[in-house]
Design a protein around this nucleic acid. Structure first.
Length: 379
RNA sequence: GGUGGGGUGGCCGAGUGGCUAAUGGCAGCAGACUGUAAAUCUGCCGGGCUUCGCCCUACGUAGGUUCGAAUCCUACCCCCACCA
């Protein structure tokens, strides 16, 4: 279980196959985010038909609602949500960053003020493992200390070192939890270190010293730092990352980020932008970002993206989608989110095919030439 | 014909002497969103310009009172309700 087979490489880009308790994940792959046990607004069947092989859930949020005991009682996240394929739960480490105004960090763990009811919640490396084990995803993530992209060296170092210390505690607790059934869930570490190359290297070395992980995650990127910095750090880390294990770039990203991440040896991605931007009416297309609420689409009969094979583009006109948004009909949000998810998943599929056929670099060039990452210019 | 109510920026709708180019909402325009406190948030939204400011034109029409009027007065036009 948890084996990763490297099928082909093209320079640093890789095509692989990851075996998990609930199925196989062919990489590179985008993983839609379903924080609360649902990819916002979408039916599991829609997510599956969009080509998703694995989705995320969130430890902190599911701990607050409905509580891991409910999920465990209902047979675990897979049975509870009816999502039959692999799942990964994030540890709550990102909430250390995103809920900055509601938390207090100490060496023992992090105290959160619940945004749901104001109650105090304490998350530690150990409890994060216990919760994730109860949730029952295929992959559990280490509880880490994420710092902002603009963090100075001392803060970045503090977060990185604490993440390493916490990783050791995560490993011990997770090992104990899975002692009886090692095929049930695996634990992945997260590299931190902010925007500092040497801290990143230190984090990687420290992480690899602590265990023989079945996968490695890179965290703390796309949190406010400039894009070239993210590329530089990926370039810096790639040679040191275990070649025969999947690499997961957490929280990334936008279409161009996937293409560039794949080119730098990343196998897995997740990001809320697809669903969030979709709900906000912003669609990625090869022609540029489309804001579907614009009056320009009032009677536009074409799909969001004529080159897209998603269920939204196969069936609905921009005119209808715009109408749904303006009329605040929920279907609109769902359809654009679905399109965006498919847009990212398709990048993974196309990159994989290109890598397997040894023409990834060409595909990458052509993709960039064809893709406009600004707003669509109305003709 | 009578009585009462009302005519405000693309639409709806506040405002009843100066703090009003005029609250709000909608529509419109522009932007943000990257391991989800987000079906959210931000800016613009009479016209023009040298746009952290200045100049025009504005609250049905015309006149009047006043230092000053969308706000008070007069006449007229139009809309709505009820009564003849």
């Amino acid at each position: 279980m948890f084996e990763f087979e490297l099928n082909a490489t093209d320079e640093r880009a890789r095509a692989g196959r990851l075996r998990l308790p609930h199925g196989i994940v062919e990489t590179p792959a985008f993983m839609p985010v379903g924080t609360l046990g649902a990819v916002r607004g979408l039916h599991p069947l829609e997510v599956e038909r969009a080509g998703a092989q694995i989705i995320l859930g969130n430890t902190y949020h599911l701990h607050l609602r409905p509580g891991e005991e409910v999920v465990r009682t209902m047979g675990g996240l897979h049975r509870f949500t009816t999502w039959p394929r692999p799942m990964l739960t994030d540890s709550g480490g990102f909430q250390v960053f995103s809920l900055a105004t509601l938390r207090k960090i100490a060496e023992e763990g992090v105290e959160f003020t619940s945004h749901v009811d104001g109650s105090r919640r304490f998350l530690t490396p150990e409890s994060a493992m216990e919760i994730q084990y109860a949730l029952g995803a295929d992959i559990a993530m280490a509880f880490d200390h994420v710092v902002p992209g603009g963090a100075d060296r001392s803060l970045a170092e503090e977060g990185m070192k604490r993440s390493l210390r916490w990783l050791e505690r995560c490993r011990i607790r997770h090992q104990a939890l899975t002692a009886d059934d090692q095929d049930r869930q695996t634990l992945w570490p997260i590299i931190q270190g902010g925007t500092f190359d040497d801290l990143r290297r230190q984090s990687l070395e420290g992480t690899l010293t602590l265990g023989d992980w079945t996968g490695t995650a890179i965290g703390g990127l796309s949190v406010g730092e400039p894009k070239p910095v993210m590329h530089r750090i990926l370039d810096e880390l790639e040679p040191g990352l275990p070649r025969d294990r999947p690499r997961y770039l957490m929280g990334v990203g936008f279409p161009e980020d996937l293409v560039e991440g794949i080119a730098r040896g990343v196998d897995l991605f997740d990001c809320v932008a697809a669903t969030r931007n979709g709900r906000h009416g912003s669609a990625w297309t090869m022609q540029g970002r489309v804001n579907i609420r614009k009056a320009a689409h009032r009677t536009a009969d074409e799909p969001l993206d004529p080159t897209c094979d998603c269920e939204t583009c196969q069936r609905f006109s921009r005119s209808y989608l715009r109408h749904l948004f303006v009329a605040e009909e929920i279907l609109g949000l769902r359809l654009v989110a679905l399109h965006n998810i498919r847009f990212l998943i398709r990048i993974g599929e196309q990159a994989r095919t290109a890598i397997l056929e040894g023409r990834f670099q060409n595909w990458r060039r052509e993709w960039h030439a064809a893709y406009s990452n600004g707003s669509e210019t109305t003709t």
